[in-house]
Amino acid sequence: MEKSTWKTRVGLAQMLKGGVIMDVVTPEQARIAEEAGAVAVMALERVPADIRAQGGVARMSDPELILAIKEAVTIPVMAKVRIGHFVEAQILEALGIDYIDESEVLTPADEEHHINKHKFQIPFVCGCKNIGEGLRRVAEGAAMLRTKGEAGTGNVVEAVRHARTVYSEVRRLQSMNEDELFVYAKNIQAPYELVRQVAETGSLPVVNFAAGGIATPADAALMMQLGVDGLFVGSGIFKSGDPQQRARAIVEATTYYNDPAIIAKVSKGLGEAMVGIEINQIPAEQLMAQRGW
């Protein structure tokens, strides 16, 4: 018997497909998320909208809170570490949680290196804006990707940009010959072997979810129709008027993303969505998607 192999790490992400992973800050919220049909929860002290509003350095959450959330639910529990902060990752691995998000939502701990994720037994998910960034993360050992979007804004525009970019690059790679693939791999600073694999299979080497700005069932279905495998919803649920009902509606819109009649039905009477932010109102140094290299 071999524990925590590459296949089981990538495999858990495959089991999450077609589902919604919800940010929660208390065990009670985690229960609401599980009850609404979330496939996993992200345990945090503050959702991205609050991190954005309060400023300061955002770090890994208190292990006590993460464990209390793990106790409350039976679905997988994920937690975030700062980019490059491999000791925060060692702590989460020691806690026995299910997945680590090396996340731009927290303040980066290293401006050059991401975590060498091959050194861990626990699987990692990482953010990307384009295929080069995504394949660099896979080369470092990420078993799952998510497009970054712009977290804590309730504005889906960046999530759309990043998903469209990734999948249009996948399609472009499929039309290239070997000579062109060598140059393309060099230009996007990604390992040639992974670039060639994407060109051959027409898909990313690991599961890819969307994240960052999804606030409505329509946003959820939009991202699914653009081709992502599932969704992370951060502030969009528990910063809204009726989290329980919105959570259920987003789950159903994710399953029935190709059925406008059902999306219309679940979108009715959800109360207030979270307050959104225009991306161009955010000072450049506060854009989270630009963190990571």
Binding site: M1, E2, K3, G96, I97, I122
Partner: peptide, 14 residues
């Protein structure tokens, strides 16, 4: 029994 082998770290191949 659900999740009967432990957490994700106990997922395995055999």
């Amino acid at each position: 029994r659900r999740n009967a082998f432990g957490s994700q770290l106990d997922s395995f191949e055999a």
